[in-house]
């Protein structure tokens, strides 16, 4: 009697893919330790020079910039996403629910290029927003949104919002409505019910959504590249620039390796911090 039928057959393809992933990461590690030979794609001998190069204020600012971008984006995505997720889960009419669902989720399936390009048209100096503001006389000169941090954050919030909404809605939909009814029956008003019951119970979803928003923003390339236009440098745009403008793949590899470690470290700190907070909140 085979107690585990199909184990070999079903696991093999994924094992192959896991080897591919591991090999790719190892290839990056390997490249990060190799010297750059100008004018050649093939790397030179082993060295730690790349990491020494990265130990420079300019790169430090790029890391800081990436971190700020992630924090702002996650924060706004959360603030906007929470009411939306709440409305989606609690909407009484099925059609309103479906409408909210489709509107908030469609961008998730549109990819970075279409969305970023659309925001370029909205935010540009001759774009929609400035045209409207100028023509209504609210401003006299165009506001600079393109090539600024604010512009990038606006587009990135739009980019991460759908996944944040999905994760928050999943958390909210699994809260037993009777807990809220119980709180209401005990005399709590709607705001109090929300603050004392709904919000605390959805914290795990908030943590998960924040982590995901962070990871997505960190991974975003087209948005900072196209809207930032070289003025807003992130790790992702820097890696591309080092790789494809200077063809310094060893440096690009070490930069993305440090970026990965940086992202993992920030997420780990965030998650540990939230867990501590939750444990203390439970008392």
């Amino acid at each position: 009697m085979t107690k585990r039928p199909f184990l070999g057959w079903f696991a093999s393809p994924s094992i192959l893919i896991a080897f591919g992933i591991t090999a790719s990461v190892l290839a990056i590690v390997q490249y990060s330790l190799r010297a750059h030979v100008p004018g050649s794609i093939d790397p030179g001998g082993f060295t730690l020079a790349n990491f020494a190069t990265l130990w420079h204020v300019a790169y430090g600012l790029v890391f800081l910039n990436s971190l700020l971008l992630c924090i702002w984006t996650a924060l706004f995505a959360l603030l906007i996403g929470y009411p939306l997720a709440y409305a989606m889960v609690r909407a009484r009419s099925l059609s309103l629910r479906s409408a909210i669902l489709l509107i908030s989720l469609t961008p998730l399936f549109l990819g970075e290029i279409v969305r970023t390009y659309s925001w370029m048209i909205v935010l540009g100096n001759r774009g929609f927003l400035n045209s409207v503001l100028l023509q209504t006389g609210l401003i006299e000169r165009p506001i600079n949104l393109m090539f600024t941090m604010s512009g990038v954050v606006i587009a990135l919030v739009h980019f991460t919002l759908p996944i944040v909404v999905v994760m928050l809605a999943a958390a909210l939909s699994h809260i037993d409505r009777n807990l809220e009814r119980a709180a209401t029956s005990l005399g709590a008003g709607r705001i109090r019910v929300f603050l004392t019951v709904t919000l605390p119970l959805s914290i795990p979803g908030v943590v998960a959504a924040t982590s995901t928003a962070f990871a997505w923003t960190f991974s975003a390339f087209a948005t900072p590249q196209m809207i930032g236009g070289g003025q807003v440098q992130t790790i992702s745009t820097m890696v591309y620039q080092v790789g494809f403008a200077s063809f310094n793949f060893p440096l690009a590899a070490s930069l993305s390796l440090m970026g990965l470690l940086f992202a993992v470290a920030v997420l780990a700190i965030f998650n540990t911090g939230m867990r501590q907070l939750e444990r203390h909140g439970a008392h």
């Binding site: 990056i28 991974s219 790790i235 992702s236 790789g243 993305s256 990965l260 992202a263």
Partner: peptide, 9 residues
């Protein structure tokens, strides 16, 4: 968690 640009690279 691994950013797409890292996977591509």
């Amino acid at each position: 968690i691994i950013p797409n640009f890292t996977i591509g690279l």
